[in-house]
């Protein structure tokens, strides 16, 4: 992991998790792998914060966990996004876009 890693901004972890699960259900380690992979190693999500986040999202009804088998034949808890999760993802995306735009404006102003 020679690449520079960035701190995840507070609150963005939920967004990333939901985005990751948008396409297909994954287990916890799969979610972490996927985030690291897409961000080309910029974001490394530690299980210490990922698992609590997954459980929280599940309690909030945005994702749902089910026991299933990995391609390697191991039992793992797979999370799939729910309708409420998809709606939440849309909202969070919009929020994020606003934040990015706002920060951009600030940075570009002289």
């Amino acid at each position: 992991m020679g690449k520079r890693q960035a701190e995840l901004m507070k609150g963005t972890l939920d967004l990333l998790v939901l985005k990751t699960l948008e396409l297909e259900p994954r287990h916890g380690v799969g979610v972490a792998d996927r985030i690291e992979q897409i961000s080309s190693g910029t974001f490394v999500v530690k299980p210490g914060s990922l698992f609590p986040a997954l459980h929280r999202l599940e309690q909030e009804g945005f994702i749902k966990g089910e026991w299933s088998e990995t391609p390697e034949g191991r039992r793992a808890r797979y999370y799939r996004i729910t309708g409420a999760g998809l709606r939440q993802l849309t909202t969070e995306k919009k929020n994020w876009a606003r934040v990015v735009m706002a920060i951009g404006l600030i940075l570009e102003s002289d």
Binding site: H27, G28, F51, T70, E72, R74, R75, A76, R77
Partner: peptide, 15 residues
């Protein structure tokens, strides 16, 4: 449930 999930994650990484 929680125990199992964590065990599974560990097993996955181990493998």
């Amino acid at each position: 449930d929680l125990d199992e999930e964590m065990q599974a994650a560990q097993a996955l990484l181990e493998e």
